[in-house]
């Protein structure tokens, strides 16, 4: 489609940019974006499954490596699939995401911390538990 017929269509249906039909180069651009995202996601998944089952690395480092790989893959999904960008029309989405991440961190880290603390206190001998009470 040409640019010449855009104002007419805009007038008819009040379509905003991004709603109008992309041309061939934009389609190719979109397909390449999804393909790159898929390749990166598959690669990170394979590395995760490999790291989880391997004996080649120091064992206590495996959960940390898995965590880092998962965060990287979630980042890839957000950028290439959900299209979260740093562009000015995306500021609200990024701010909402940051708030969501904060809440998720508070819920998970807070729960694990409190429950492990309670667990540790439960493991104390009875006489020490009695001393802790006022």
């Amino acid at each position: 489609m040409s640019h010449a017929d855009q104002p007419e269509r805009l007038h008819e249906t009040d379509i905003s940019p991004g709603d109008d039909r992309p041309d061939r180069s934009e389609i190719a651009h979109g397909l390449i974006g999804y393909a790159v995202g898929l390749a990166l996601a598959v690669l990170l998944s394979i590395v995760s499954f490999f790291v989880a089952g391997t004996n080649l690395v120091w064992q206590p480092s495996i959960p940390i490596a898995l965590f880092v790989l998962a965060v990287a893959q979630i980042g890839v999904h957000l950028v290439f699939f959900v299209h979260i960008t740093t562009g000015p029309d995306n500021t609200n989405n990024v701010m909402a995401l940051a708030f969501g991440v904060l809440i998720v961190f508070l819920v998970i880290a807070g729960s694990l911390w409190i429950m492990s603390q309670l667990n540790a206190n439960m493991a104390l001998p009875m006489n020490q538990l009695m001393q802790m009470q006022p």
Partner: peptide, 8 residues
Amino acid sequence: LFSSFTCG
């Protein structure tokens, strides 16, 4: 993963 790609 592949369903995410085809959804795109």
